[in-house]
Simulated assay, not measured.
Amino acid sequence: MKAIVVSLAAALLVGLTTTAAHAATNVTVAADGSGNYTTIQAAIAASSTGGVITIKAGTYQGQVQIPASKSGLTLQGATGTSSDVVITGNKPQSTAGTVGSATVYNQAANSTIKGLTMQNTYGAGSQALAVYAAGDRQVYRNVRMLGYQDTFLSWGGTGSSQIRQYVYKSYISGAVDFIYGNGAVVIDSTTIESLNIGSSSNNGYITAAATDDSNPYGFLITRSTLKSSAAAQTVALGRCWHAGGAADAIGQVLVRESTLGSHIRQAGAWQDMSGFSWKTCRFTEYANTGAGATGGTSDRPQMSASTAANYTSQKYLAGADGWNPVQ
């Protein structure tokens, strides 16, 4: 009997040790050395699946990569004020490549980033990503994404496979195609600011969707505010990006129940790109308000109420597994 008790105790100890080894890590990053790590990348390397990284106020230079192996990871600003924690870089795609330019490159499924800023300060002249979202079921809440060209990319690779992201109560800025890709993305209750680049005729494009034609959902901008100090009617809602010239990249964008500033074009709100007509893509609006909204023209297709019932945030993100992070 004693031998059995000893064996059971040993087995229990092994189990507890194993469980502890696989428990989610909770660590703090502080540039001043008052946390567990001084860099975000070091904290990510040390974190386990499902871990939480809390980042103290400060500015953190250089690219942050979250690999696919860190599923369920959370990065959060310590104060809850997104401007207090800034992850910054200034690499352009022209020299670093698309991945290399991204200030934050997030491949981890089921990950959450909240309460911080991610920016690329490179400016005009090249793609220069603030965020490259490359994993499924990602949530970005109370964040700022700041850039100029291609600020936020959702990209799941070529073909019909699709990743999903939910952006909530956040702020995104840029000038050229600054929300783009082929993912299923819901941007909810967010301020989207088009930078004023000083033109009297063309101050850029907000979206560049490359949704595969087999996927019904691409980008949904809902309950949001589109603003700019740019001249009236000089910013397009988006243009039709056939990534790599792919004929099946039939972008899908719906802007619904949002407030549109006077910077939004009346004619030409949707634009051609690289020889492809915007009419080859799936661009619509529904129930928008503000100076930049319209009752509907041939340039501003409006979705019917009956169709809009199937184009909700939940529908965009549900996929085959019923994911529903919507607030």
Rank of each mutant, 00 (worst) to 15 (best):
S214C: 06
V5Y: 14
H22R: 06
Q127L: 05
G295P: 11
V6Y: 14
P216H: 02
S214V: 11
T234A: 09
G97Y: 05
M118K: 05
G77H: 04
S71F: 03
C281H: 09
T74M: 10
G135S: 08
S82C: 00
F276R: 15
D212C: 06
S154M: 02
I44E: 07
Y180I: 01
K114W: 02
T289D: 12
V5N: 13
K56E: 14
Q138H: 05
G275R: 08
I250Q: 15
A293L: 11
D150K: 11
Q76C: 04
S258T: 06
H242I: 05
V29C: 07
A134P: 00
T95R: 04
L254A: 04
Y122N: 00
G89W: 03
D248W: 07
D32G: 04
G159W: 05
D188S: 03
S111A: 14
G135H: 04
D177E: 12
G156W: 01
A57H: 07
A24I: 08
R265I: 08
A130F: 06
I113W: 00
K2Q: 08
S199C: 07
G244V: 06
D188W: 02
A269P: 00
V64Y: 09
Q252F: 10
M118C: 14
T190A: 12
N26D: 13
S173V: 01
I197T: 15
V6I: 12
V235L: 06
Y37E: 06
S101L: 04
A236T: 02
V139N: 05
G50V: 05
G147Q: 06
Q65Y: 02
V139Q: 08
T312A: 00
W278N: 11
Y60W: 10
Y180T: 01
Y205S: 14
T117D: 02
I163H: 03
Q41E: 12
L73R: 08
V104H: 06
R141D: 14
T297Y: 10
T225N: 15
E257Q: 13
S228M: 02
D272T: 01
A249R: 15
F283R: 09
V27C: 12
I206C: 12
G159D: 06
V27N: 11
F219W: 00
P301R: 10
E193G: 01
G319W: 00
V143M: 11
M1G: 11
G35D: 09
